[in-house]
Computed example of a mutant assay.
Amino acid sequence: MTEIAAARVRELNLYRQYFDLVAAGQKTTEVRVKYPHLADITEGDVIRFRIKGTDESCDVLVKQVTEYPNFEALLDGEGPANVNPTATREEQLANIRNIYPPEKEALGALAIKIELLTP
């Protein structure tokens, strides 16, 4: 049985700019709000990232999940280059907060360390 067949596979949408970084193996930490449906994501799970409205996808293996109280703590703890090697910490913080408003950030932030499975 392959690793993917044995793992729990979750599908999540990703914006094109971040999808391209994941698919190239350059983005090794995904940032998500700790929504109830993601609270049980764990090491060994597989995430299939998709670009909404397309057939494009790539699979990653979850290596580690770390919870943070907010996005600033997450970027400081994980290192901005692991989240997005093409943007500064300040740019990333602005981009993340543009996606997730303060009431979402208040739920907590998840840093999901990932490893590309399908190039």
Score class of each variant (00 low, 15 high):
Met1His: 10
Met1Phe: 12
Thr2His: 09
Thr2Phe: 05
Thr2Cys: 06
Thr2Lys: 15
Thr2Leu: 08
Glu3Asp: 06
Glu3Gly: 09
Ile4Cys: 07
Ala6Trp: 01
Ala7Gly: 00
Ala7Ile: 09
Arg8Val: 15
Val9Gln: 01
Val9Trp: 05
Glu11Thr: 11
Glu11Pro: 11
Glu11Tyr: 11
Leu12Phe: 14
Asn13His: 15
Tyr15Asn: 14
Arg16Thr: 10
Arg16Trp: 02
Gln17Phe: 11
Gln17Asp: 13
Phe19Gly: 08
Asp20Gly: 07
Asp20Phe: 06
Leu21Cys: 00
Val22His: 10
Val22Glu: 01
Val22Lys: 03
Ala23Leu: 02
Ala24Asp: 12
Ala24Thr: 10
Ala24Cys: 07
Ala24Glu: 15
Gln26Lys: 15
Glu30Ala: 12
Val31Met: 10
Arg32Leu: 06
Arg32Ile: 08
Val33Pro: 11
Val33His: 03
Lys34Trp: 08
Pro36Asn: 14
Pro36Cys: 08
Pro36Glu: 10
Leu38Ile: 08
Leu38Cys: 04
Leu38His: 15
Ala39Cys: 05
Thr42Pro: 03
Thr42Cys: 15
Thr42Ala: 12
Glu43Pro: 02
Glu43Asp: 11
Gly44Ser: 09
Gly44Met: 12
Gly44His: 08
Gly44Pro: 00
Asp45Gly: 03
Asp45Phe: 05
Val46Ser: 06
Val46Asp: 01
Val46Ala: 00
Phe49Gln: 05
Phe49Ser: 00
Arg50Gly: 06
Arg50Ala: 07
Ile51Met: 07
Lys52Thr: 06
Gly53His: 00
Asp55Leu: 03
Asp55His: 10
Asp55Met: 09
Glu56Leu: 11
Glu56Ala: 13
Ser57Glu: 05
Ser57His: 14
Cys58Ser: 02
Val60Leu: 08
Lys63Val: 13
Lys63Ala: 07
Gln64Arg: 11
Val65Glu: 00
Thr66Met: 15
Pro69Gly: 01
Asn70Lys: 01
Asn70Pro: 10
Glu72Ser: 06
Glu72Lys: 09
Ala73His: 05
Ala73Pro: 02
Ala73Gly: 06
Leu74Glu: 05
Leu75Asp: 08
Asp76Ala: 14
Gly79His: 00
Gly79Met: 04
Pro80Glu: 09
Ala81Asn: 10
Ala81Asp: 08
Asn82Pro: 01
Val83Lys: 03
Asn84Pro: 05
Asn84Gln: 03
Asn84Cys: 04
Pro85Cys: 06
Ala87Pro: 03
Thr88Asn: 11
Arg89Ser: 04
Glu90Met: 05
Glu91Ile: 13
Glu91Phe: 12
Gln92Pro: 04
Leu93Pro: 06
Leu93Gly: 00
Ala94Gln: 12
Asn95Trp: 07
Ile96Cys: 02
Ile96Thr: 03
Ile96Gln: 03
Asn98Ala: 14
Asn98Thr: 14
Ile99Arg: 14
Tyr100Asp: 15
Tyr100Asn: 12
Pro102Lys: 07
Pro102Gly: 08
Glu103Lys: 13
Glu105Ile: 14
Glu105Ser: 00
Ala106Arg: 15
Ala106Ile: 07
Ala106Thr: 00
Gly108Ser: 07
Leu110Gly: 01
Leu110Asp: 00
Ala111Tyr: 14
Ile112Arg: 07
Ile112Ser: 00
Lys113His: 15
Lys113Ala: 13
Lys113Asn: 15
Glu115Pro: 05
Glu115Ser: 06
Glu115Asn: 03
Glu115Gly: 08
Leu116Val: 04
Leu116Asn: 01
Leu117Val: 11
Leu117Met: 08
Leu117Gln: 01
Leu117Arg: 09
Pro119Glu: 10
Pro119Ser: 14
